[in-house]
Amino acid sequence: MMKGPGERNCTCRKDYMGDGMTCKSNVMQELRNRELTSFFYSVLWSDAYFLQGRGPYTVFAPNNKALKKAEYQKPENKESNAALVLYHIVSCRILMPEDLMQPRNLTTLSGETLTISYWEGSIYINNKAKVVYSDQESNNGIFHEIDTVLIPPSFQKLNGMNKSASLPDLKDVANEHGFKTFFKLLEDTEVMERVQDRLHQPVTLFLPTDSTMAALPQEQKDFLFGLQNRAQLKEYLEYHVLHDMKMQSAEMIHFSSMKTLQGSDVSVSCVGEDKIGELYISDKSCRIVKRNLKFNGGLVYGIDCLLTPPSLGGRCDQKDTVDITMPCRYCAVTVSSDCPSISKPKSIQRCDLPRCFSSVNAGCQSVCTMVIWKPKCCSGYYGRDCLE
């Protein structure tokens, strides 16, 4: 192509993008090009290689001076370093400087929140760290250089962990983070055996919080916890398990679907402008509220709903009881129970024996009670399959 005097035509190589003057690689490479070496090596130690991947990501990168400040407490182990790094990364959006000039909250990859403010011509994070430089957009995101390290709320606890400590088991994670109710259901079924089976590990679990389980309608609890509905409960539980994968929060949005142990698919996606960085499951009504909780068999994510397998729909089948009156017999005949095996004895009442010469009410008959379930959809679910 012809060029005039003083003009040049720049073409970026594969996997780079440019503005006609400068070519940009991925965010991870651009951190290195900016010589933000201290934070770059923290990223490497945390295994955050996803910053070379698809994105989009917005990274708030502390400069080398920030990591040399006297008040900065260095990570003592890999877990606290990973929490620190993830707290500086927001997925789902490339936030340009102009996007940060209005007050807003951002959810980081650690699941914890950053507060953005703007005053006197400068952008501040958590009212403490100042943006001193903003890079151009790269092929998977952007970074903003900041003058202070951001410390996540979870840092101190993680930093106090013994470097040689082994990962907790699932029960410890459930007790500490509030998943006791759902964990007990896993324990009461063979689903726990499959979760702990090394053949299926590592696993990724979406566990409803105790408050979520407590808030379920009583009719749905009755259905789920009824012994006669164990097959359906098993499907519910297995729908919360991804087997043979340890899915990081930065990666799961790039999968259009993920196969659960139950057999149906789930997906994770971002939402709109008012909740940047938050992740939702499937229909965007179920929010991931806790992230990256490691245990010795994989990863746990806390969610604020009970996921409903498509094969079941939102079922709240209603329990009812029916009395069955058995045939009249001689009262002198001793029987432990003539009720059917699917029922329980309720009472014995007098009856007329089918003989013309017998006196009135000379016989006895058992009254048995049987539990039946009437098909019913939970509130907000409709049709034969109780779908939304």
Rank of each mutant, 00 (worst) to 15 (best):
M1S: 10
G6T: 05
N9T: 10
M17I: 13
N26P: 01
M28D: 07
E30S: 06
L31C: 04
R34K: 14
S38A: 11
S38D: 12
V43S: 01
V43Y: 06
L44S: 13
W45P: 00
A48T: 11
F50L: 04
L51N: 01
V59H: 02
F60I: 05
P62Q: 05
K65H: 09
L67R: 09
K69G: 09
Y72Q: 07
Y72L: 04
A82L: 14
L84K: 03
L84D: 04
R93F: 12
M96Y: 10
P97A: 07
P103I: 09
P103S: 14
T108R: 01
S110D: 08
G111H: 05
E112D: 09
T115G: 05
T115M: 12
I116R: 01
S122I: 07
I123F: 03
N126L: 08
N126S: 08
V131D: 08
Q136I: 07
E137V: 13
G141F: 01
I142H: 04
I142P: 03
I146E: 03
V149A: 11
V149I: 09
I151N: 07
I151S: 05
S154G: 06
F155H: 06
G160T: 12
G160P: 03
S164N: 14
S166D: 14
D172H: 14
D172Q: 15
A174C: 11
F179W: 09
F182G: 02
K184L: 10
K184P: 01
L185Q: 11
L186N: 00
T189Y: 08
T189S: 12
E190Y: 11
M192E: 10
V195E: 04
R198A: 10
L199K: 15
P202W: 03
T204R: 01
P208R: 00
P208L: 01
M213E: 05
L216T: 01
Q220F: 03
Q220W: 01
D222R: 07
F223W: 10
Q228D: 15
N229M: 04
R230C: 07
R230V: 13
L233Y: 05
L233C: 04
E235A: 12
E235R: 13
E238T: 05
V241P: 01
V241D: 04
K246T: 04
A250S: 10
A250N: 05
A250Y: 07
S257L: 02
M258W: 03
T260E: 02
T260K: 00
L261Q: 06
Q262L: 08
G263N: 09
D265P: 00
V266Q: 08
V271D: 15
V271Q: 15
E273K: 13
E278A: 13
L279P: 00
D283N: 15
D283R: 11
C286K: 07
C286S: 11
R287F: 05
R287A: 11
N292T: 12
L293G: 05
V300W: 08
Y301P: 00
P309E: 02
S311F: 00
G313L: 04
G314D: 06
R315Q: 09
D317I: 04
M326I: 02
M326G: 00
P327E: 02
R329D: 03
D338G: 09
C339P: 03
K344L: 14
I348N: 11
Q349E: 15
Q349N: 10
R350H: 10
D352F: 05
L353E: 10
L353A: 02
F357I: 14
C364L: 04
Q365C: 02
C368N: 02
I372L: 14
G380M: 05
Y381F: 15
Y381W: 10
D385L: 11
